[in-house]
Write a protein that binds this DNA or RNA. Structure first.
Lengths: 173, 173
DNA sequence: GGGATATGATTAACATGTTAAATTAAAGCC
DNA sequence: GGCTTTAATTTAACATGTTAATCATATCCC
């Protein structure tokens, strides 16, 4: 709280503050960030024990749900940018958790699938993961959780319409 | 969609799939991640035009609201881990957007404040930022937005109780 | 069918996330 | 008062986020 000035406590020139702006910590991006971090904090230790990062786990899970998938589509599903995905796939392939080939019809496209070893790893991690998810659901309430996810989806949908409203007001080039 | 196998299309051994798990893309972490990304996508172009990242902007905003603040407290408020904050403060100081000193009472503690130059930058960015936030609020609905934030805060609070329920079920000791 | 253009994927470069280790200063203890 | 322990911050090391550039292949189009 303390809003007093040090009154010449360091030699540097103290500054007048107070620019009218929304309370920073209550902004929507911060609310979403904190909420997500609170959730992921529950999962990370278990993933880490199995040598997986959050993103690697997302990829393996996405792959476990299909027979094979193209890299671009995988990026969309796992919500990763191309460069991140590219690096992670390189590592997962080196660990033999996934397998890759190229599409016969279009040599530019890569096709990825999970390996037997990858499936075994998923089977090892999934029970704990599901258990944590269940605990969260119990704690917060299944009903409320569903409602929250609806509201999040609605938010996403709302903003898809705006889409990068570019251009500065005062910076006429 | 297509769930058929390539039937010997690459030489590698195709794999039996289907491990029973929640639909990955509908998980809470993914919902929160996508929602946040949809929001930040609106802000990033403007910040970028002013040479700021999302995190740098968080720090400057936090600093603009106080006269001075200790590094640890700043990390808490801006929701950044120590190492990230340490690097960013180094850069912001080099750009003369902030000023640092050490607490007289405890030489371990760093004290940070925003500079005049930093304040000017904030004044330059804030209008666009506020305008974007207003547009989001209009689009989604102020009422709904408030409710969403309440639910996010409640989620955070719920999970604070759980706090890292460690220990694997099948990995005794 | 060959050159311009577009697309899928990767690489490059820099910023941050994440955990562990190192560094420096305080506090506690005897 | 010196020694151990604790605390604040930074550094180290590696993984990912983010944008731009590169590379290879496809597609267009004349």
């Amino acid at each position: 709280m303390t809003l007093k000035k040090p009154a010449g406590s360091g030699g540097a020139h103290p500054v007048e503050r107070r620019i009218p702006m929304r309370d920073f910590s209550k902004s929507l991006p911060m609310s979403l960030l904190r909420a997500r971090e609170a959730v992921m904090k529950q999962f990370r230790p278990s993933l880490r024990r199995h040598g997986l990062t959050e993103q690697q786990w997302r990829i393996l899970r996405a792959l476990a749900a299909v027979d094979a998938i193209e890299v671009t589509e995988l990026a969309r599903v796992a919500f990763l940018l191309g460069p991140s995905l590219s690096r992670i796939l390189r590592d997962l392939e080196a660990r033999q958790l996934i397998e890759r080939r190229t599409a016969k019809a279009d040599l530019r496209r890569g096709v990825v699938s999970i390996s037997q070893k990858g499936l075994k790893l998923i089977e090892l991690v999934a029970p704990t993961s599901e258990s944590i998810y269940a605990a969260i659901t119990r704690r917060y309430g299944a009903q409320k959780l569903a409602e929250l996810q609806n509201m999040l989806a609605a938010l996403e949908h709302s903003l898809a319409a705006l889409e990068v409203t570019d251009a500065e007001p005062s910076e006429n080039e």
